[in-house]
């Protein structure tokens, strides 16, 4: 049993990671961090840098949480990577970050969050980025 979190180097991604860590601390489960890229552009800002991944791993180690950090680049979109990991690790929770999308934007770009919500076989915790006021 485990928790899967879809991570991006962005406020939403950080919020999702924080929420996932809180959950993992409570239940002491395996935390799987997924930061994927389709790898279809020369530059992908959603793909976290080495140092950032190292920082996350260090943090999780310090917290004493059993963890896995994966950066799959296999031409799949983020939603199917998260869903695949959830199936593989028999997740009992998926944590994702949400951001605002217009309906038209959703039609054209598709929505990762929507796909995960609809297709996941376990509860999904969707968090929003922390407000900076």
């Amino acid at each position: 049993m485990s928790i899967i979190v879809g991570y991006l180097p962005s406020p939403e991604g950080t919020a999702a990671l924080e929420a996932a860590i809180t959950q993992a601390r409570k239940d002491a489960k395996l935390l799987v961090v997924i930061n994927s890229s389709r790898g279809d552009a020369l530059v992908d800002k959603r793909y976290a840098e080495n140092e950032e991944i190292a920082g996350i791993e260090e943090r999780l180690k310090k917290e004493g949480i059993e963890h896995l950090v994966q950066q799959p680049v296999r031409g799949n979109d983020a939603a199917s990577e998260v869903l695949q990991a959830a199936e593989q690790h028999r997740a009992d929770l998926i944590v994702i970050g949400l951001r605002r999308r217009t309906p038209v934007g959703k039609l054209i770009m598709g929505s990762t969050a929507q796909q995960i919500l609809l297709e996941a076989g376990c509860p999904v915790l969707a968090v929003k980025a922390a407000h900076q006021s």
Binding site: L42, V43, V73
Partner: peptide, 8 residues
């Protein structure tokens, strides 16, 4: 095709 994204 290069698969690994680069960092700018």
């Amino acid at each position: 095709l290069r698969r690994t994204p680069l960092h700018i």
